[in-house]
Amino acid sequence: MSDPTTDPAFLRDPYPAYAALRSRCPVQQVPTGSGGHSSYLVTGFEEARDALADPRLSKNTAAFFAGKESGRRIHPAVAHTMLATDPPQHTRLRRLVTGSFTTRAVDELRPFIARTTDALLDRWPAGGPVDLVAELAVPLPVIVICELLGVPEPDRAEVRRWSGELFASGAPAVIDAASHSLADYMTGLIADKRSRPGNALLDRLIAARDGDDRLSEEELVSLGVLLLVAGHETTTNFLGNAVLSLLLHPAELQRLRQHPDEIPSALDELLRYDSPVSSATFRFTTEAVTLGGTHIPAGKPVLVAIGAANRDPARWPAPDTLDLDRSPAGHLSFGHGIHRCVGAPLAKAEADIALRKLLTRFPDLRLAVSTEHLVWRRTRLVRGLTALPVLASRT
Rank of each mutant, 00 (worst) to 15 (best):
187 T>H: 07
251 A>Q: 14
208 A>Q: 08
308 A>C: 06
208 A>D: 03
240 G>T: 04
369 V>Y: 03
10 F>D: 09
177 A>N: 05
325 D>N: 13
263 I>Y: 08
290 T>K: 01
281 T>A: 11
113 I>P: 11
388 L>Y: 10
17 A>E: 14
61 T>R: 15
227 L>F: 07
200 A>E: 09
357 K>C: 12
53 A>P: 00
16 P>K: 10
302 V>D: 03
374 L>G: 07
337 G>K: 06
312 D>P: 02
98 T>D: 13
48 A>E: 09
4 P>H: 13
357 K>S: 15
311 R>K: 10
46 E>K: 12
233 E>C: 02
91 T>G: 05
329 A>S: 15
357 K>P: 00
316 W>V: 14
171 A>Q: 14
237 N>K: 07
59 K>M: 12
123 R>D: 15
347 A>W: 14
40 Y>S: 03
144 V>H: 04
309 A>N: 09
28 Q>L: 14
310 N>W: 02
271 L>T: 06
365 L>S: 10
240 G>K: 05
73 R>I: 00
293 G>C: 05
276 P>L: 07
182 L>A: 01
12 R>N: 03
209 R>N: 08
252 E>T: 01
239 L>R: 04
129 P>N: 06
361 R>N: 07
98 T>C: 02
67 G>M: 04
307 G>R: 07
104 R>F: 03
204 R>C: 01
278 S>Q: 15
42 V>T: 09
67 G>Q: 04
269 E>C: 07
395 T>A: 13
84 A>M: 14
223 L>V: 06
354 A>T: 10
31 P>S: 13
388 L>V: 10
325 D>P: 00
1 M>R: 13
13 D>F: 08
132 L>K: 08
106 V>L: 06
354 A>K: 13
374 L>D: 08
160 R>Q: 14
191 A>M: 02
175 I>N: 01
15 Y>W: 15
246 L>P: 01
319 P>L: 12
118 D>M: 03
336 H>K: 08
339 H>Y: 08
110 R>E: 15
279 S>K: 09
63 A>T: 15
158 E>T: 13
33 G>K: 04
64 F>E: 07
300 K>E: 15
258 Q>M: 07
179 S>F: 03
91 T>A: 13
319 P>I: 12
160 R>T: 09
15 Y>K: 04
386 T>W: 01
377 R>G: 01
22 R>C: 11
138 V>Q: 09
25 C>N: 15
28 Q>T: 12
220 L>G: 04
21 L>R: 14
192 D>E: 13
203 D>L: 05
198 G>S: 06
370 S>C: 04
204 R>E: 13
77 A>E: 07
285 T>I: 02
242 A>F: 03
305 A>H: 08
236 T>Y: 00
166 L>Q: 02
337 G>M: 09
243 V>T: 14
173 A>F: 00
269 E>A: 09
294 T>I: 02
69 E>C: 03
298 A>R: 13
392 A>C: 09
332 L>Y: 10
349 A>C: 12
32 T>M: 14
290 T>F: 00
225 V>S: 05
4 P>L: 14
214 R>L: 10
133 V>Y: 01
61 T>V: 14
371 T>E: 15
285 T>K: 02
8 P>H: 11
162 W>Q: 05
379 T>F: 00
160 R>W: 01
289 V>M: 05
326 R>N: 06
349 A>D: 09
94 R>H: 10
255 R>S: 13
290 T>L: 00
175 I>A: 01
65 F>K: 01
76 P>I: 04
394 R>M: 02
5 T>G: 01
251 A>D: 15
161 R>T: 14
